[in-house]
């Protein structure tokens, strides 16, 4: 899951639109500058052109350099590419079918399905609306609580997400191969709840874990003052995988490697 603050994520989403508005404003700006000082307008154009070219060159060189020097950079690029690709190639037919079924007859399961599909498409507001409607009709479905938690988690709504994951876990212990328990542990960690360590340990014992759960466990151990345990968890996370990791898990492995490398063995 992403650790990017929701405000930054919202700003990044609006960036393309802002660029279009900026481009639209540019001729007007030049015209206004030209009215008072024609030389300054020409200089502004020439300087902007030069800056854009040099900026492009620096950005390319900088990206290559960062990829070479900072290990999470390639993992971050892979994860960003993976997420973009998923967004672009997600089949929209199931959502259209689910929406048309919902128009015929609204039920908790149909609202939950629409909510799940909207979450996958990145429409958090729409997903939240349908998941709330679903829970209004039937509060005893673990997967709906789990989906609700997954919508709230990237928005850093830790308290509500923790409740959702807790309900999912209570209704169906080990739900989604322990994913609800793992996220519950992370939410507790973010809320400063001392129960986080126990939850994450329980997850580790029952379901094993990958780089993500190890990194989160390391965070919890560090907060509890167990530095050696945290280093061991990070080592587990950074260990070479037997199978190719997903882009998300690979990102956490990269983080673990950097944290071990950057502080000479201590996170």
């Amino acid at each position: 899951m992403s650790s990017t603050p929701p405000a930054v994520r919202t700003a990044l989403r609006k960036l393309p639109l802002a660029i279009v508005w900026l481009l639209a404003a540019w001729p007007l700006v030049l015209w206004l500058v030209h009215r008072s000082d024609p030389v300054a307008a020409v200089e502004l154009v020439q300087q902007t052109q030069a800056s854009l070219w040099s900026g492009l060159g620096f950005a390319t060189a900088g990206t290559l350099l960062v990829c070479l020097v900072i290990p999470p950079a390639p993992a971050w690029l892979r994860r960003t590419w993976h997420r973009t690709w998923i967004q672009l190639t997600l089949d929209r037919a199931p959502l259209l079918r689910a929406l048309s079924e919902l128009r015929h007859f609204a039920s908790a399961s149909r609202h939950a399905e629409v909510g799940r599909l909207l979450r996958l498409r990145g429409d958090a507001a729409g997903a939240l609306q349908h998941l709330d409607l679903s829970l209004g009709l039937d509060r005893d479905v673990a997967s709906t609580w789990h989906q609700l938690g997954l919508v709230l988690f990237p928005q850093h709504e830790w308290q509500r997400a923790a409740v959702a994951f807790q309900n999912a876990e209570q209704l169906d212990p080990g739900h989604a191969f322990g994913d609800a328990l793992l996220h519950l542990g992370r939410c507790q960690q973010e809320l400063g709840d001392p129960a986080a360590l126990a939850t994450l340990r329980a997850h580790q014992q029952r379901h094993g874990g990958g780089p993500r759960s190890h990194v989160w466990l390391a965070d919890a151990l560090l907060r509890a003052g167990d530095r050696a345990g945290a280093v061991a968890a990070l080592r587990e996370a950074a260990a070479p995988p037997r199978l190719r990791l997903t882009a998300e898990e690979n990102w956490f492995r990269a983080i673990a490697r950097v944290r071990l490398w950057g502080k000479r063995g201590t996170p």
């Binding site: 279009v20 639209a24 540019w26 001729p27 007007l28 030049l30 015209w31 024609p38 307008a41 502004l44």
Partner: peptide, 22 residues
């Protein structure tokens, strides 16, 4: 939002083609 932005961009390009001040 996108409709407004792209319309503004087109209008701005039209303005530039009529007033390419630099």
């Amino acid at each position: 939002q996108w409709r407004w932005a792209t319309t503004a961009l087109a209008a701005s390009l039209l303005f530039w083609s009529l007033q390419p001040v630099t």
